[in-house]
């Protein structure tokens, strides 16, 4: 797509970036920021609507403070997104770099496998893996890495193929630089911008997927409050307590939106041509 993209006014981007940073800070400081114990039950204060005194966002069916649970719930998506995306990048970039650089039969085999892997709907693969591995933080991360790494292999390999014929690589070869050094010191830096763009946009997908998994009861254990699990609990009280399902879902939406706004902006800034196609897969 060579068409000029619509880029958001910088104010929105700044706001989105601020929101992402806030999410990160809240995720890190969650235990100190929560006004109340997110798991403290109070049967006298059940199902209080938002703006009740002492409970800004109301309470749930066990009388737990929704705001505190929302804050505590930032931690899981933050940890999962950070770990899953960086591990996928690490594995995907290494495999893609190797495959593209070595070329030949090895490359053909690796790419066929990657294509086959990408043939699975992403969330189906994640659900299937959590289903067999069982819920839990590590397993959710594994499931997400397993279903994501191949995206980067495709992206990196394509770029390596063209880069390795470029003059700066050829001249490094001529003066006797080793293959490993060429791959890591010369080619890797050149592909990092597009990897960064895709990774940023994938963060949004990972956060949304983690929420879906928690919503389905396939996420991190039940003792840890997560937005997806809060939504699932709130679903039973749609008629009596609208805020229980509305608030955590809105949180997921806003974070994903903010990440996407920032991601799109980085993409438009760095390179309007290369990244667009890759992220659509």
């Amino acid at each position: 797509m060579t068409a000029r993209r619509f880029s958001l006014p910088p104010l929105y981007v700044t706001l989105a970036l601020g929101f992402c940073l806030a999410f990160l800070v809240v995720g890190i400081l969650a235990p100190w920021l929560a006004p109340l114990d997110p798991n403290a039950q109070s049967l006298l204060n059940r199902l209080r609507p938002p703006l009740t005194e002492g409970h800004l966002l109301g309470t749930d069916v066990l009388g737990r403070d929704v705001l505190s649970r929302l804050i505590a719930g930032t931690r899981v998506p933050m940890v999962v997104a950070t770990a899953a995306v960086s591990l996928s990048v690490l594995i995907g970039v290494a495999v893609g770099l190797f495959s593209g650089y070595v070329g030949g039969l090895v490359d053909t085999v690796i790419m066929r496998l990657t294509d086959a892997w990408l043939a699975f709907p992403f969330i189906l693969l994640a659900i299937a893996f959590v289903a067999v591995l069982g819920p839990g933080l590590t397993n959710v991360i594994i499931a997400l890495v397993v279903s994501q790494w191949a995206v980067y292999v495709r992206l990196v390999r394509g770029q390596v193929l063209s880069l390795k014929e470029r003059e700066f690589v050829l001249s490094a070869r001529m003066i006797g630089v080793s293959h490993l050094r060429i791959a890591v010191q010369h080619i890797l830096p050149a592909i990092m911008p597009s990897v960064t763009i895709v990774a940023t946009l994938e963060i949004g997908i990972v956060i949304a997927t983690e929420a879906s998994l928690s919503f389905l009861g396939l996420g991190v254990s039940a003792s840890q409050p997560t937005w997806g699990a809060m939504l699932a609990e709130g679903r039973a009280y749609l008629a009596s307590a609208w805020w229980l399902a509305t608030i955590p879902g809105a949180a997921v939406f806003l974070v994903v939106l903010a990440v996407n706004v920032v991601g799109n902006h980085i993409r438009d800034m760095v390179d309007p041509r290369s990244a667009g196609a890759a992220t659509k897969a």
Binding site: L231, A245, V252, F253, V256
Partner: peptide, 11 residues
């Protein structure tokens, strides 16, 4: 595309 579909459904 930032909207979690299940949340949209619930809303």
């Amino acid at each position: 595309y930032s909207m979690p579909t299940f949340w949209l459904g619930i809303m």
